[in-house]
Design a protein around this nucleic acid. Structure first.
Lengths: 232, 232
DNA sequence: CGCGTTCTTGACGTTTTCTTGACGTGGCGG
DNA sequence: CCGCCACGTCAAGAAAACGTCAAGAACGCG
């Protein structure tokens, strides 16, 4: 799995020890996960709210709050799987964490392979039907897990290139992308000169997604540079 | 919770040691669970098919079959949570069991409180009130326990590969699956390049399941990506 | 061993998608 | 005002992907 593939699950790692974070970043990154890191409970909650991560790895020994309370707090508003990683191995700790809403509990030290296996379990539990990765633009939805795009509730068929192009722009919404960047990502590094490709396929995308393709609301042109998608 | 309340969760305990079963019967019974017991894999599968238990506690060291294989077999047709309880504590054993479809893995000896907590986690993961032993789409039914497919009430004979292909698509209804994913799941990781297989067998499936195989209503093609089953 | 079923493989026609070139439009500076 | 440049549009043909059929290999079973 490509590390920057938008379909690879986003993991929010919460641990105050930089060493542990480095370790997890390396291990998970090598297995195709995208990582988000937090060192405090406050940071963790903030990131959890602003990002649509697929799973959360939570250390209980945080400097600014009790991990059990953090878990309970998260469960008030999100169902993202939470795997607790803790140095505390007492049975009561496990029971408390699991009853607070955690989905699994691993005691340090643990094996990476077991962690990955338990993460896979947690990820496949994610209730089917609820997309973990969804992007919204106006009345348009991009369901990244199902690879389905809808507009006003109606499904829109996109060819592979159109879909790639759209997700690329959507992931970098608000940012201006140059021809070279787009061509490299969608067509591969060999086609960096074919600026024509982008124009043709962008036109096709606009026809399908914009109300009036002559006056685009979302897929905007940045003259002399290239394209940009409006932020939601 | 009243111990004899018919609404209390039914637990299928699979372990060949009578002592262990007695222990679990007592512990779980005291917490209001109803118990069903099996000492062999064959017994376990039979009971699992005839009863609608809420959760399954499975010992890996059974006399007549490998616990991993039992797990995999059960996962062909049921989504009942499976908590593995094993004396084997090696990381590879855990990974194998979890990847085979188990939802949790406890190493003997374990604390009852932890077991109960993990059972609560597994139970709250279970999709509320829907024991998925049957899939429906249109006038077609897939009975996963009996491995029988019907259309308009008439039974349809499917070859093993067709059945695998159909259940794969049906379980991921709505999601677009790439030919790589399909080939890996149905034919195994070695056949990832043989995109032809899918086309031929998909055609066969459509002939049997669709009214007009030229204009499929359920088994849809996603050009240049692969296939997708319409959601019910 | 012979039978029927299922799977693999190849060939070929059809459909969809991509590329490519021609041409139109509009802003901007000379 | 004109021409340049970058972008937008359209359509034709090439390329890739898909659907179908059928022959032969592999498999399981009596």
């Amino acid at each position: 799995m490509n590390p920057v593939d938008p379909l690879s699950p986003l993991v929010l790692v919460v641990d105050d020890e930089p060493q542990m974070r480095r370790f997890l970043r390396a291990s998970l990154g090598a297995h195709g996960y995208r990582i988000l890191e937090a060192g405090t409970a406050a940071e963790a909650v903030m990131l959890a709210m602003s990002h649509n991560q697929a799973i959360l790895l939570l250390d209980l020994g945080l400097p600014d709050a009790d991990g059990i309370a953090v878990t309970r707090g998260l469960r008030e508003w999100t169902q993202t799987p939470i795997v607790v990683i803790s140095a505390r191995g007492r049975e009561d700790d496990k029971v408390a964490a699991l009853d607070a809403g955690a989905d699994d509990y691993l005691t340090k030290p643990f094996g990476v392979k077991e962690l990955l296996a338990r993460m896979r379990v947690a990820l496949r539990h994610a209730t089917p039907g609820t997309p973990q990765h969804e992007l919204t633009f106006g009345a348009r939805f991009i369901d990244l897990t199902r690879r389905v795009v809808t507009r006003d509730g109606v499904e829109i068929h996109l060819t592979p290139i159109e879909y790639k192009l759209l997700t690329l722009l959507a992931r970098h919404a608000g940012k201006v992308l140059t021809h070279r960047q787009i061509l490299k990502e969608v067509w591969g590094p060999g086609a960096v000169e074919q600026t024509h490709y982008v124009r043709v396929h962008m036109a096709e995308l606009r026809k399908k997604l914009e109300r009036d393709s002559a006056r685009p609301e979302w897929l905007l042109t940045e003259p002399a540079v290239d394209y940009r998608m409006r932020e939601p």
